[in-house]
């Protein structure tokens, strides 16, 4: 049984201009201990898919799927209260903007304690110890002192470490990282990616890495889903994807990498959209 199984997920938003389909029949499977990367540009629906799965979309969204199960439990049938038990504990998520996702009014220690209080039976002292332990695990120097720090007193990389600490506080089985390193420097990015893959390996977590950076995919993923405009272009294991990309869109993405530049100008993805469009019509007929 897979850790996460989603089949034929569709998400529609009601807008003033009529319904807008953000996701059109995508499938995801994540095994325990596997790293799945979802790649795509902005607007490809990669974040929407995860928000839909966690039930975090606004009311204007209609989510339908043939199957949406986590450890065999149908996520669609859960009540809000039951869902809250799962989310934040067994499934947790870290977001792109570390500084924006922490509450500026409370210390990082408080925000960690909050998660532990909601999801564990630990008493006050144990929670306190666990917070220190978590901050140490994510590589915050002087954790005893930093628990009392406010988010604005930390750098972006440290805030992201705190976010990771919060997300992994209850040993989640599935961690979703939504562009975890886009706002960070390369050297810090490396540290955060190492931290995430390290935690993933040590705890045997499933990890979903949402990103638009092919470099991040190459460095972390086992399997890759490529998305474009709410549709799934290609699913492959990471080596196959880079060695022999099937879909023209994937090929376009890979050739748009500056390090793969051969000529004077970079090939852009729009050079390939015609090929993509013709394939779409073929698929429909």
């Amino acid at each position: 049984m897979s850790l996460l199984q989603i089949r034929n997920l569709r998400v529609e938003f009601d807008t003033a201009a009529g319904p807008f389909r953000a996701l059109d029949g995508v499938d995801y499977t994540v095994e325990a201990g596997e790293v799945l990367a979802i790649v795509g540009e902005s607007g490809s629906g990669k974040s929407v898919a995860m928000l839909a799965m966690m039930g975090l979309l606004p009311d204007s969204a209609t989510v339908t799927a043939d199957e949406m199960s986590f450890e065999g439990v149908d996520l669609r049938s859960l009540s809000t209260a039951q869902r809250r038990k799962v989310i934040g504990k067994d499934i947790s998520m870290i977001f792109q903007e570390p500084i924006a996702s922490l509450n500026p009014c409370f210390t990082v220690g408080f925000q960690l304690l909050e998660t532990l209080k909601a999801h564990t039976d630990l008493n006050r002292r144990q929670r306190r110890d666990r917070v220190i332990e978590l901050l140490t695990a994510v590589g915050i120097p002087e954790p005893e002192r930093r628990v009392n720090a406010f988010p604005h007193q930390m750098s972006g990389g440290q805030c992201q470490r705190v976010m990771i600490a919060i997300a992994t506080a209850c040993h989640p089985k599935l961690l979703i990282a939504d562009e975890p390193t886009t706002a960070l420097d390369v050297t810090i990015q490396k540290q955060i990616l190492d931290l995430l893959t390290g935690l993933q390996r040590d705890h045997g977590m499933g990890l979903i890495m949402i990103t638009h950076d092919m470099g991040v995919v190459a460095e972390t993923a086992d399997r890759v889903v490529v998305q474009y405009q709410g549709k799934q272009m290609e699913t492959a294991d990471v080596l196959t994807l880079f060695e022999a990309p099937e879909h023209p869109y994937t090929r376009a993405l890979l050739s748009a990498l500056p390090e793969n530049a051969t000529g004077d100008r970079l090939p852009t993805v729009s050079d390939y959209t015609e090929a993509f469009a013709s394939e779409q019509t073929e698929a429909r007929t």
């Binding site: 390369v186 991040v216 190459a218 990471v238 080596l239 880079f242 060695e243 990498l257």
Partner: peptide, 12 residues
């Protein structure tokens, strides 16, 4: 060293 590499050899 910190720059992610997206070539087949380093993935292997």
């Amino acid at each position: 060293a910190a720059t992610p590499r997206a070539d087949v050899a380093s993935i292997k």
